[in-house]
Nucleic acid binder design. Structure first.
Lengths: 375, 375
DNA sequence: CTGAAAGCGCTTACAG
DNA sequence: CTGAAAGCGCTTACAG
């Protein structure tokens, strides 16, 4: 045995059996905590295991059990092309990583581990990469923006798939936050409580279901209340802070009159918008009110503190795992595949809520956050 | 075939072979991109594959190849006990997550995926959990603070292991940033350039090798320059912002005279220290200078901007994968295990550098960060 | 309680 | 170029 790399023909269950003077079946039984091997046998086996430094091979186990106890999680890489491989990233990591944390915590309780993989949406070998990943897992959780609806449909025919923040009624099970209700509430708050009459929505990725719902709900409610909601290509962002910066700079450069309030597709974008506004000496919320969506941790540390919509981020991840786990175990149930509508695909919508802080024009929170709870 | 869950006896290579009218060997060959199957055969196989929605089973493949193309990454869970499962977390995620990103980017190029798993250091089944993870991977990367040196030694005898931020010369290969050099440089900067005479170091986890090196290097240099460096239990933190807050509050409550400058074990701690200082009306750096370590993205957004030591975080992760990959491929080389010193365990030390910003007393950066680069 | 044997789904010499 | 067969390291009925 090489004490440094674990080299030397890795011991297998056969080596353990030989050393303990039992059959591999018995070794397997103690490995799996069965209660039939009698204590004396069990001890011999345990002794052999630790003497050999034996670790059961997960692949062999998976093959035999037809269960890997691994779920794949695929998300979109923010940056990370070959050119900018170690370019700075920041808060942009948080949303996806927090979802993953939620998935992981729940998965662990069921003995599952996470195979995480970020993909570049431009990769030409994307379908292949995802298939390789799928082969290593019992099921897949796909974050938003990693695969086209057609791509999702295709992979979902082959392995259990849960999408995050996708559209309901799509080709896969789905879990998302309730964007519509709280965007309407936000619109009412801005128009009715603050009496803003000219507003705008800065969009996220044009093909993101969440973005579409947010934009529509907001604009519809604003207009229903008799106020104006600016739209159009000038307001098309991509969920990044950078896009928020560019949009504001562009508008100001054109000499456009800014709206009184800007609702952003997410917190990231709002961060960029506030930065760009400050850059031009404009006060938030004095000159322009700005709001976000997600309530990432940094939202309450911003100046001004960001009014936003709180999504239960980790819970979205946790729920996604649960749905996937149900699909995985149902699968192995071996029941004849049913084509009908008797098992409609779940589309879980988790509640969100409007968090009014300063950036919309509300007074500062009189209860500043307690550090213990945050860190 | 169930269009919804991928149910229905999942097709295997046998099904593909039958449908294409070839042997499973041929299917395997086209699957692996060999060039011997002639085009005509290859097309038939590809057709059968897509018609059946066949995905090769990673476990079977791994068993046959004796290679899973999966590396395990284990890190310590910050919070996430059952009580506070969805408690807020924040920047504390960034350090570990950025390392993981670095690992992943490089791993992907070699066709490896990451099996990530956070562990609670108090778990009584920790060794078992880690063994289960090990069984699903070709090798393991262990973040700091997940396992005792003895635990690391034990697992490293069984599977290839690389630790992060561990001590050199330990029981496993290791990758870390150079803490000593830049902490000495920091000490010189504070004492010589700013002329501070009374300083302190707020420690991280007492058993963290990085922390030990940082504290010793800093204190030694400060003293060598004839200044004073406070130490002792009053300055013992745990790398969290909360511990920074508590230490400052405690000191102030006791009526202690604060030192002129405080070097923290990491940025998180500095964040807490600055917050607690502000809480008591103390100015940074006017009354007390504060510095961090890591240069997490938020460091430059703090007020005042944080003077800190920049670690190449993603590179640490990337390098760890490369070292591990070397160990994995060397292992399968099947060469007789060598016990001697001919393959000393790598202990990679990556360069760091002092980043002087405002919190040490230097003038504000005249080149504020450009958003495009940051987000 | 224990063991011999089949089987999980691949890959790869080895023959043809 | 292609196929039959052995083998990767487990688990689990099935007999005893």
């Amino acid at each position: 045995m090489d004490a440094r790399t674990g080299t030397g023909p890795t011991p297998t269950i056969y080596d353990v059996a030989r050393r303990a003077g039992v059959s591999i079946a018995s070794v397997s039984r103690v490995l799996n905590g069965r209660d039939n091997p009698r204590p004396e046998t069990r001890d011999r086996v345990h002794k052999a295991i630790s003497e050999l430094g034996f670790v059961p091979d997960g692949a062999a186990r998976a093959l035999s059990n037809r269960l890997k106890q691994v779920v794949g999680v695929v998300f979109r890489r923010v940056y990370g092309t070959d050119d900018g491989m170690f370019e700075d990233e920041t808060e942009s990591l948080l949303f996806g990583d927090q979802i993953n944390r939620g998935i992981e915590i729940v998965a662990q309780r069921r003995g599952y581990d996470l195979l995480v993989s970020s993909v570049n949406i431009d990769e030409h070998t994307l379908p292949n990469r995802i298939l390789t990943i799928a082969g290593k897992c019992d099921g897949l959780i796909l974050h938003d923006q990693v695969l086209s609806p057609a791509g999702i449909a295709s992979i979902a025919r082959t392995v259990p798939v849960v999408t995050l923040a996708g559209a309901g009624g799509g080709p896969s099970a789905n879990v998302r936050g309730d964007s519509a209700t709280s965007m309407r509430e936000l619109a009412r708050h801005l128009v009715q409580d603050h009496d803003y009459r000219r507003l705008a929505y800065i969009a996220g990725h044009a093909d993101s279901p969440d973005n579409i719902v947010r934009g529509r709900s907001f604009a519809a409610e604003v207009q229903a209340l008799g106020a104006e909601c600016l739209t159009g290509p000038a307001w098309q962002g991509d969920y990044s802070a950078g896009s928020g910066v560019q949009i504001i700079r562009g508008l100001i450069a054109l000499g456009a009159t800014l709206p009184r309030a800007i609702a952003c597709a997410n917190d990231q974008t709002a961060l960029g918008v506030i930065y760009a506004l400050a850059e031009h000496g404009l006060d938030v919320p004095g000159d322009v009110a700005v709001t976000g969506f997600d309530d990432l941790p940094f939202a309450r540390h911003l100046r001004p503190q960001l009014t936003t919509v709180r999504q239960p981020i980790q819970e979205i991840g946790a729920r996604a795992f649960e749905v996937l786990h149900d699909m995985i175990t149902a699968d192995s149930g071996g029941s004849a595949p049913t084509e009908g509508a008797d098992h409609p695909l779940p589309d879980i919508v988790l509640p969100t809520r409007l968090v009014r802080r300063e950036s919309c024009g509300c007074p500062p929170d009189s209860h500043p956050p307690v550090w213990r709870r945050i860190f």
